[in-house]
Amino acid sequence: MADLFHSSKPIYEQIAELIKKQIIRGELHAGDKLPSVREMAIEVNVNPNTVQRTYRELESMEIVQSKRGQGTFVTGNTAVLAAIREEMKAEILQNFTRQMYEMGYSKEEITRGLANFLDEGSIRDD
């Protein structure tokens, strides 16, 4: 159960990441209802207050909306959801390129390497 989260990052942020990934993968759609705070807390084995904080953060980013007495819903605003998708992509690319540059690869090596890698379809499942 401790494996689900990194121990040195706030858990409320990590749960927010999980939800954003579910949105990007299309497991959660615009307008979908999120699990209640307690359901989510039990599912991921954390304190309900932490989930509350996640929902609050996501609400301030306008990714979700809480409706009084009904629960918390993924926003119906598809522009916001498209933006999350782009943001996540930019973040992953940034980490990737930073690591490549740190190891001394050139821009050409990186683009050629990535293109070859994608052509070979050599994604390993691990």
């Binding site: 942020e13 954390v46 304190n47």
Partner: peptide
Amino acid sequence: ENILDEIVAIRDGYIIAHHNVDDIRKENKQ
């Protein structure tokens, strides 16, 4: 650690710290 809101650390009868756990993770990246 995943279910706590706050942590109070005590040593030799003295309270030496009292913090929100996610604030520790966020501020100290620890």
